[in-house]
Each structure stands twice: as C-alpha cells, then as structure tokens.
Write a protein that binds this DNA or RNA. Structure first.
Lengths: 228, 228
DNA sequence: AAGCGTTTTAAACTTACGTTTTAATTTGAT
DNA sequence: ATCAAATTAAAACGTAAGTTTAAAACGCTT
C-alpha cells in the first residue's frame, strides 16, 4: 500500500478515463468528501456516506488516505495551495505593474482568486470557500499546524502590502482592519449570512459571485481606509 | 415525567441553592453544554462529555430535555431571547431619544448588547456569540425554523432603521451592507479570525471586547456609509 | 410517618462509527 | 503470458454514541 494523497495534490490525469468520464477512486472520494464536509461538517459526515455517494468501497478511504482525519487534510490541501498561489501571483503582478498600491487594488488581488473559485464549473472551488469558513470554526489542530508552516507567507505578504498602501495608519490598526476585511470577504464568498438566522434569505442574490463583488468591494475598501 | 425545558426558558430560581452554590441539574447541563458545543461543535460533543463535566447522570439530559437535539435548542434559546430583546430595547431608546438616526448610532445599538455578552462574568454570554457563529455554519434545521418565526422582527426593525438612517441608498444596497456589517460584527465578537488559519494570533488583543469595539465601529460605519 | 409525584441512578440496549483484516481482482512491467 | 504490485471488495472488529428502562432516592404535602 502506498499513500496516494501526496500524488493527488498535483492534479494530473496520468491516464484517460477508461469507459465513462469517471475520475479515479481517490478523486471521487475527494470530490464527494469536499461536498459533504461542507454540507454537514467533519464530524457529522461518515465514511459510509462518502463512500456510498462516491460509489467506492468503504475501505477505500483508509486505503488511499489512511484515516478520516487524513482525508480531510487531503480535501483541504488540494485547494488551499493553488488558491494561495493565485493570490500571491496577483500581488506580484500588482507590485510589478507600477500601478498605485491602493487598498482597492489589494482587495482585488484577493477577490479575483475568490471569484475564480466561486465560478468553478465543477463547483469544487465554490465549496472550498465554504469549507474554509467551516474549518475556521471547527478548528482542526493538525490542519492548523500544517497551514501555519506552509502559508504564513500569505499573511506576511498582505501585511506588508497594506502597510505600504496605507502608510497613514499604524501597524496595529492595519492588523485590525485586515482582520475585519478578510473576515467579511471570506464570509461573503462562503455565503454566510448571520441575518438569515432570523429571516429567510434576506439577500437573495448573495449566491451570485459578481453581485457579491459589486457590493463587497466598496464596503471593504471603505472600512479599510476609514479614518481612525 | 414532565418536560422542564420550557420552564427553564424563563430563568427564575424557584428555590435557593441547597448546600454549596451549585445550580440545579438542568442549569448545570445547559452551562456545560453551552461551553462544549462552542468548543467542539454539536456533533463532536457527546452527552457523556456533558454529563460528566456537569456532574450529573447520563440519563439526566434525556429526562430534562428529551434529546440531544432538544438540549441544543434549549442552550440556544436561553440566550437568544434576551439578546434580541436588548437590541430592540436599544433601538427603541435611540428612536425615542430624538437623536439623529445615524449609521453609527444604529451600529451601537447592536454592539452594546454584544459587549454586555462579551463581558458576562459567568462567560456564558461570551460563549453565546461564538455559539451563534458556529450555529450559522452548522445549520440546524429545527433551530432555523424556530428562530425564523420568533425573531424575524429583529431584521425587520434594523432594516427599517437603516433605511431611515441611510435614505440615499436603495433598499437592496442597504440589505447588502447590513449583510456585510452584521457578519463582520458577529465574527469580531466571536473571535473568528480567518488570518489565524495562516499564522498564529495575528491580532493578539482580539479577545478584549473594548479593543474590538474601538476598531470595529469605524470599520463598519465606513462600510455602511460608503458611496456606491 | 405515609404516600406520591419528581428526580436521580445504574445498567442495558440498539445502532452507527472508524478501522482492520483477509481475500479477490485488476493493473503494469517484463 | 507471467508474476508481483496495486487496488478493490466483503466482512468483521471494537468502540462509543444516543436512548431507554426500571428501580432507587428524594421532596413535599397531608
């Protein structure tokens, strides 16, 4: 038995799908698990639910990924790397373009990758944003440590960029505003709406990513650049 | 056997605590369950964890509340009513004070009750804000329906108030801004920080409610009043 | 002190979970 | 075509979950 998880992190179709257009076992598991983890959460999603919907044997999860915990990690890691890379690429492009480093431009370097995820035709990307918001509150210890080591550069880069874009503010103020700004952006793309706790579907078009962006950008930019 | 859950929704100490300062069985269960549901989530919290820490018999949960689901509902309902009432009271006071109906004043009618919860010496209130943010993503169907019926007035009142305070914006714009504003406020008080997925404790003092408010209000007000 | 509804207790029950095992099957290189 | 490796499959394992039961203990009224 070999651990196929790492191999899957670099998604490449080595061989074409045999009969129908069915991805291989591990990919089917990842796709179904991603959706179910988002819908029901980690604990409430059983391996039997996953394997039944993925039309694979129950033991396939433990064979390909080792454990349910490791499966979750694989589900998450499959998306987080490309997403962070996309944000950093946007940051690089902005910094080297010679454009003015405004708060709005910085916000867009984050929003554009979010928008791409939200428009993922396979819907996997759209689920990932919601998965992140669930992961945030579910607080997986193992995952936290792995992400801290690999992707702390994400925060570092954005911190530096925002300090350059907003030189009139102190470091601590910028940290707070980034905290709020990324929070509201993530929640917006995840479709989280506190008000829908109290009343059904207040913002009906909140699932249209373009509408989200249209209203989100002015809100976040205003918050980021507000006078202290 | 009688269902004591409804009785507990109106918290009143019928008899004083007998020997030490120990609340009765149902209250001890509610307190412990509240904390564990926040820490680990609904599914990952077992009745045995709850009853052991509450120092009550395992069967006490089903006796007093009927089921684990009903216990969660009781945990939530114990706090949501007083919280909504506090917000509406602040709204009433503002509208009858003759002060100008500004976005900032409206934001404060929501923040002041949040602040009171966050400073609850028993810590139960602080937990409740986090419980709401978990509930938001965990999406309990039964709870959703119950809240929709009882507390839709919450959104209605704030919608009217914000439309009065921001007459220059269309109804849909205001809905979007409220969506973002309440989202960032809830997350702020719940201590949710997306950036801490990537790096440890970016905003270290994010757990001091006064500091949260200090930075949160300018951010939210700016977002709410930003030009379209 | 007796009686009675309420509460607590200990134990068992059923079910579902993640995981493991073992064998069968498929795959790919020689 | 063969054989070793990789994968799939079926079944069982041990555990822990929510719930139920029935008896014991308690608290209050009479």
């Amino acid at each position: 038995m070999m651990d196929k998880a790492t191999q899957l992190l670099n998604p490449m179709k080595v061989q074409d799908d045999m009969e129908v257009n069915k991805p291989d076992t591990a990919t089917r598991i990842l796709d179904v698990a991603e959706r179910l983890f988002v819908e029901h959460g980690f604990e409430a999603t059983s391996l039997r639910m996953i394997t039944q919907q993925a039309e694979v044997n129950l033991a396939a999860v433990n064979y390909h990924f080792g454990s349910k915990d490791a499966l979750f990690e694989s589900v998450f890691m499959r998306r987080i790397g490309p997403f962070v890379a996309a944000c950093l690429a946007e940051l690089d492009a902005l910094e080297q373009s010679g454009q003015a480093l405004t708060a709005e431009a910085l916000v867009l370097t984050f929003i554009k990758p979010c928008l791409m995820l939200s428009k993922d035709p396979t819907k996997g990307g759209a689920l990932f944003v919601r998965l992140m918001s669930r992961t945030l509150v579910e607080n997986h210890r193992l995952l936290r440590e792995a992400l801290n080591q690999q992707y702390s550069v994400f925060v570092q880069r954005y911190s530096s960029a925002f300090q350059a874009a907003l030189p009139q503010f102190e470091t601590e103020d910028i940290a707070w505003r980034m905290h709020f700004a990324f929070g509201v952006m993530f929640n917006a793309f995840a479709g989280n709406d506190v008000l829908k706790i109290f009343v059904r579907s207040q913002v009906v078009s909140a699932r249209d990513p373009d509408m989200v962006v249209k209203h989100l950008v002015p809100f976040v930019v205003a918050g980021l650049t507000a006078p202290v």
